[in-house]
Design a protein around this nucleic acid. Structure first.
Lengths: 190, 190
DNA sequence: TAAAAATGTAGACTTTTGTCATCGTCGAAA
DNA sequence: TTTCGACGATGACAAAAGTCTACATTTTTA
């Protein structure tokens, strides 16, 4: 499992972390987890940043009627956390749950900070993570706000085609901000 | 004009920057600018971070039919930029335009980086700016995706009531992701 | 100051989206 | 194996949102 993360890091930072790489990896705790398990509930403090070696996570909020709105669906090879809560120690506003049985590598804040201090390149990781997350959010706002339900579906099929077959229609609908019945109908028309 | 920024910084960083404060302020260039002027067009590189001493800016994108989708409306006392472009030097994906005659304080990247190196506290500014921007985006996604047009209007009246009277209906509608005619009708029903 | 352009409102109408009920399938659990 | 529940598809209908036109008002600009 740890190989996936080793690969991920060397891909990004090149070979100039070779000597520190194993130290970094030793800060992560492997987690094997079933599907439909909560990694974070809103109101709790987010204590970890997760690297997804295998599987799929859902980041979402509940509205007043307990309907879910999914902000992100994250799969293997990427990071997942609730960065505002992780960074500030304030209660999280979002929930994180496994969509599939997953294999994760978790780093807690003390280790995260230790890494930031001892491995200079690791500082970049957090900044990159934050910048990427921000860029994704901005992109999502600019893309989705003006699109019709049908165009959102087309967008998903173009940019994240694997999701369509991998996760449930209910989940996708909550990600696209569409009613699930509407999603079912529109999908049939493509 | 510069007083507004001086106040803003001391409010946030306290008095422990007193000795460096004037150095920091000297890195900003004052800009007096009319309404409806572009500060950034998508495709260009964003060269500045702006502090709004007075006035109002719109951050937006065009769709294929040249309709505008507004991601943010920013008023005095806050920062505005296209951070991804400013940080990476890649072309911006968004436009920034003045909504009112405005007074801005602009810092370019060389000065920004010089400040990051010479004034340790300034490092915080960028991180805070990024984190705040990210938090706003996440909040906006989670709030807006599931809300009806009417509930979006109510949200705006609750959290940014002054905007309703300050800027045009057209602009607000493009911010809320609502057709302007629909916005006009719904507003009348409140 | 007058002409031109942009804005806000309103009604009639169309299209899109949401809601509800039903039904068949599939997989998990008893 | 049987039963139960979650899921996805579909039809009928309701509600919400979008489009188009017209018109009055305000704002810009010449």
């Amino acid at each position: 499992m740890i190989d996936t993360l080793r690969q991920h890091i060397t891909d990004r930072l090149g070979n100039n972390v070779d000597d520190k790489l194993e130290l970094v990896l030793s800060c992560f705790e492997p987690i094997i987890i079933d599907r439909n398990q909560f990694l974070l509930k809103e109101g709790e403090v987010c204590k970890y940043v997760y690297f997804i070696a295998k599987g799929c996570l859902q980041v979402f909020v509940y509205d007043n009627d307990l309907n879910e709105t999914t902000r992100d669906i994250v799969t293997e090879g990427t990071w997942c956390s609730e960065l505002m809560s992780f960074g500030s120690g304030n209660p999280a506003t979002e929930n994180i749950r496994t969509v599939e049985p997953s294999e994760l590598l978790a780093i807690d804040k003390p280790n995260f900070q230790k890494m930031m201090q001892t491995v200079p390149q690791f500082e970049k990781v957090y900044k990159q993570l934050l910048e990427t997350s921000y860029a994704n959010s901005v992109y999502r706002i600019n893309t989705f706000v003006a699109l019709s339900a049908l165009d959102r579906i087309k967008w998903l099929m173009k940019y994240r085609p694997k999701l369509m077959t991998r996760v449930s229609s209910k989940l996708i609908a909550s990600y696209l901000g569409i009613n699930k019945d509407v999603f079912s109908r529109l999908k049939a028309k493509l």
